[in-house]
Write a protein that binds this DNA or RNA. Structure first.
Lengths: 126, 126
DNA sequence: ACTATTGGTAACCCGTGGGTTACCAATCTG
DNA sequence: CAGATTGGTAACCCACGGGTTACCAATAGT
């Protein structure tokens, strides 16, 4: 499971917040939530497969702790979405759209898996 | 829909990346993905309800653009999970672990809702 | 006025994910 | 050893989300 899917569940987010305060056992986390322990166990497995938590087996107990490396994909996406362009982004909004409009057919021809462009060629070109 | 659920879908993440490069129309986004246009439309509605995108109606076209304010809950969660000390975070990575290690039992005693610490006291200390 | 383009909605299918109960293995404790 | 605690797994149920096709409204072009 990827980190984004893992973070989509409010219970899992709460578990992560709980683990951010320090390692915890399954029963501890289960007692802090209204759902059953198997449900918690499943959530922890999901978080583990997403690389967000790791578990240390200590006797019969299992100590889960946060693995902060797992959030890397999220920070990466945020970085993609919040780019800091040297020039004012707002000033280019209209211009960008103009560029798209001008090169529309070219982009479609090379990038997309459009079925046919015959319908499109009739549209602009002028 | 909350931002986390919105970000859980790879198609929606791709749409956001696309919009990060500038506003786009629905047909443009649909042509860039292998799924149908109604599916794209649904995704955009989801992104809108999550506050991640906004739409400007221009004639018969609808120009979607990124709304960066919508990612606030995500950055907030990341902040919760990765407590950011005012000093360089990177420089403290190892130190943090040391601090955690040193104060582990204290944190567990005050922070967690452990039922009884008798079992725990036997475990470590050594 | 006619036609094409854009895009939203409705109805529907189906896979998946989150929840439950029941059960079992393994480890501490008395 | 007997019993209790911890925690994972299995089987199952059901709601929801993402996909499709079909249809419709509205605007732009000719």
């Amino acid at each position: 499971m990827d980190a984004f899917t893992a973070l989509a569940d409010p219970v899992r987010r709460e578990l992560l917040r709980q683990l951010a305060a320090g390692p915890a056992r399954v029963v501890d986390m289960a007692s802090a939530h209204p759902i059953s322990r198997p449900a918690i166990s499943k959530h922890l497995r999901a978080l583990g497969s997403a690389g967000l938590v790791v578990a240390d087996d200590v006797g019969r107990e299992r100590h889960y702790r946060l693995d902060r490396a797992g959030i890397a994909p999220v920070t990466a996406l945020l970085a993609e979405l919040a780019p800091a362009p040297p020039i004012g982004e707002r000033a280019l909004d209209g211009l960008e759209l103009e560029v798209r409009r001008a090169g529309r057919d070219r982009q479609a021809a090379e990038g997309a898996r459009h079925t046919d462009d015959t319908t499109r060629t009739t549209e602009e070109t002028a």
